[in-house]
Simulated assay, not measured.
Amino acid sequence: MPEPEGKHDPSTPLLSLHVGKVRPYTRAGTTSAIAKAPVGGRLRITTLGLAGDEQADLRVHGGVDKAIHHYPLDHYAAWRQEIAHPLLDSAGAFGENFSTHGWTEASVHFGDIVQAGSAVLQVSQGRQPCWKLNDRFGQPDMARRLQSTGRTGWYYRVLEEGAISAGDRLIVLERPYPQWPLSLLMDMLFQRTLDLALLRSASVLPLPPSWKKLIEHRLARNEVESWRKRLEGPDRT
């Protein structure tokens, strides 16, 4: 069974909230809501996420298992050292809804139940980065770099609807899977891709259907699915 890693402050303040609207994107015929702006006041949280927030491609973004995206402000310093881009001057660069300092993939665990304002959320999965980050940052390998560094952020599902505002504290109420920091799951997904013992251990977790299918595929075929289309996106021609 995997060993736990990372220490975790059971609460952290929400520094900022971000929402975005679907707009035409960089390549012909594409749209995105990745350009999310900070908002003040109190926002309603429903099972599909923050009031006023949108997702362009509902096949791979949004939905009950990806209702809210959280990206640690902690990672911004490392990104600024690696690439120079004005988006990194403030939170929201990665299309996140929640921005905090103090929680990362090494300390947040799969299944954590979190009080967020008057809502209750659950950590549902890590982020699988896509090509839209490449175009947003003008870096053809940006999605792959998120993937390889493990600095991906994570998603919540909504267990109890409510409302939240910047300044509210996020508080871990329960940790049902203390052996499964998100960093370990992301390592399984992107690095230790055919570690059969790790895959078998993860297969018993109540993961979203897409992750279950991925694990079953690797265990059955002993091969890794192609990430090319997700990481590079549609042809520009």
Rank of each mutant, 00 (worst) to 15 (best):
residue 231 L to N: 10
residue 47 T to A: 12
residue 128 Q to W: 09
residue 63 G to F: 14
residue 215 I to G: 05
residue 70 H to V: 06
residue 56 A to W: 13
residue 19 V to W: 09
residue 78 A to D: 12
residue 29 G to C: 09
residue 73 L to C: 03
residue 82 E to L: 08
residue 135 D to L: 14
residue 27 R to F: 08
residue 124 S to D: 02
residue 148 S to V: 07
residue 126 G to P: 02
residue 39 V to F: 08
residue 136 R to N: 03
residue 194 L to I: 12
residue 73 L to R: 06
residue 220 A to W: 04
residue 106 A to D: 15
residue 175 R to T: 06
residue 156 Y to I: 01
residue 81 Q to A: 14
residue 141 D to K: 04
residue 197 A to L: 05
residue 140 P to E: 10
residue 128 Q to H: 07
residue 150 G to I: 07
residue 1 M to E: 04
residue 134 N to D: 03
residue 224 V to P: 03
residue 136 R to E: 00
residue 168 D to G: 04
residue 150 G to S: 04
residue 128 Q to L: 07
residue 224 V to K: 15
residue 193 T to R: 15
residue 203 S to R: 15
residue 167 G to P: 01
residue 45 I to S: 04
residue 226 S to T: 14
residue 201 S to N: 09
residue 214 L to Q: 15
residue 215 I to D: 13
residue 152 T to L: 09
residue 42 R to E: 15
residue 145 R to W: 04
residue 147 Q to Y: 06
residue 80 R to T: 07
residue 112 D to F: 02
residue 105 E to K: 02
residue 212 K to T: 13
residue 133 L to G: 00
residue 188 M to G: 04
residue 179 Q to M: 08
residue 140 P to H: 06
residue 111 G to F: 04
residue 205 L to D: 07
residue 196 L to I: 11
residue 219 L to R: 14
residue 145 R to L: 05
residue 202 A to Y: 05
residue 14 L to H: 06
residue 52 G to N: 13
residue 133 L to S: 01
residue 32 S to F: 07
residue 1 M to W: 12
residue 99 S to A: 15
residue 170 L to I: 04
residue 167 G to A: 10
residue 139 Q to L: 02
residue 81 Q to I: 01
residue 1 M to L: 13
residue 188 M to F: 04
residue 50 L to Y: 11
residue 28 A to G: 09
residue 192 R to I: 03
residue 119 A to K: 06
residue 160 E to S: 07
residue 67 A to N: 05
residue 83 I to C: 03
residue 168 D to Y: 06
residue 187 D to V: 08
residue 4 P to V: 14
residue 218 R to F: 09
residue 166 A to K: 13
residue 93 A to M: 08
residue 54 E to V: 09
residue 159 L to A: 02
residue 171 I to G: 00
residue 36 K to I: 10
residue 89 D to F: 04
residue 194 L to T: 05
residue 41 G to Y: 03
residue 5 E to W: 10
residue 198 L to I: 08
residue 72 P to S: 14
residue 122 Q to K: 04
residue 96 E to V: 08
residue 195 D to G: 01
residue 82 E to I: 00
